[in-house]
């Protein structure tokens, strides 16, 4: 059995791009050091930040929640978790259970939103009614709800579980489709826009997908190992993921190099020019007079649901904060 290059204990992994073996303890430290370095290098968080962590129930958000929880003392973070129940059958039920268990294990308050309760339809039902791809509707709804919760919570940042593989693939896709303006959104963070949008941070920016899995597995944080039934294995993203991993195997460290260089160049990349404004119905970030969420819900219900959803989100956030206060007092 290969031994850890640091302490000589049994190794659990070999890090090709560093040419060293690591045992369980040093592997955990290695991933946390990556997160710590990204926080510092990309100025993702400052001490005392209030952070809303978006948790899906999968390995990446489990790893993210665990890493931020373990770093929370050092950075004096106030962490909240958010899980959105998408209504995708058994997959969503399992995701909700894993997210609840992970938040409970780490003693992080969890806010749960149910898309069907808020909009009247599950994500697949919405997609059918709108005649749009499930993933596109899902992305739109999730982005809106995450931002709505973060604004109500007064969060300093929303932490997302995108790993290095995800971001390398999205970047390659943007290049291939020449949607170069999208590259600007793939960096380690986006900025806050006072009162209408909370900036997003990606603490796993330099953590590989496999590393994220192994970190969550080694620390025993609950996560589901099921694939969303709507994943399309023939999509450009899936094909690029396989190809990038073939390159990584031959050129270890390529994905990190690509992302680090991209983060440095992000200010030079072309940007889509639009006027930042607040939606005339719900008041949240929009590039036009009415935000995409209000437009989408108006198509289905005849009226935009943004204001009603925001008011329900406000109640849920208040309930969560008062539960926090009473548990701190008790």
């Amino acid at each position: 059995m290969a031994k850890c290059s640091i302490c000589g204990r049994d190794a659990v992994a070999y890090i090709r791009y560093q040419r060293r073996y690591l045992c369980r303890e040093h592997y955990i430290e290695f991933v946390e050091n990556k997160v710590r370095r990204s926080i510092k290098r990309y100025k993702l968080l400052s001490k005392g930040s209030k952070v809303l962590v978006s948790v899906s129930g999968g390995k990446d958000s489990a790893a993210l929640l665990m890493a931020l929880s373990r770093l929370s003392k050092e950075y004096q973070l106030k962490l909240y978790a958010l899980h959105i129940n998408l209504g995708i059958g058994e997959y969503s039920e399992k995701s909700l259970r894993a997210s609840t268990e992970a938040a409970k294990m780490l003693r992080i308050p969890l806010i749960i939103l149910n898309v069907k309760d808020l909009i009247g339809y599950t994500i697949p039902e919405l997609a059918r009614r709108l005649r749009r791809p499930v993933c596109s509707v899902c992305g739109l709804v999730k982005r809106y709800l995450i931002n709505a919760v973060a604004v109500e919570l007064g969060a300093d940042a929303v932490a997302l579980g995108h790993n290095a593989d995800d971001l390398a693939v999205y970047s390659m896709k943007s290049f291939i489709t020449q949607d170069l303006e999208y590259l600007d959104k793939l960096g380690p963070k986006t900025e806050n826009i006072q009162g209408i949008a909370v900036g997003r941070i990606r603490p796993l920016y330099e953590v590989y997908e496999k590393e994220s899995f192994l970190y969550a597995f080694l620390l025993g944080v609950p996560f589901i190992h099921d694939e969303c039934p709507h994943v399309n294995h023939e999509s450009l993203e899936q094909i690029l993921k396989v190809k990038l991993n073939e390159v990584e195997e031959k050129k270890p460290g390529m994905k990190i190099m690509m992302l680090r260089n991209m983060a440095k160049r992000i200010r030079d990349l072309p940007r889509r020019e639009y006027r930042v404004q607040s939606c005339r119905y719900c008041g949240l970030l929009s590039s036009t007079e009415v935000c995409s969420f209000c437009r989408m819900t108006a198509r289905i219900h005849g009226e935009p649901l943004g204001p009603i959803v925001r008011s329900r989100v406000r109640e849920l956030v208040k309930e969560s904060e008062s539960r926090q206060l009473s548990s701190a007092a008790g």
Partner: peptide, 22 residues
């Protein structure tokens, strides 16, 4: 286990395909 681990008789082996998403 690391990639150069050699399989032994009676080892219980699980290959976990790391899934995208989450």
């Amino acid at each position: 286990v690391p990639e150069d681990y050699r399989v032994k008789e009676d080892d219980e082996i699980v290959i976990v395909r790391v899934l995208s998403g989450g």
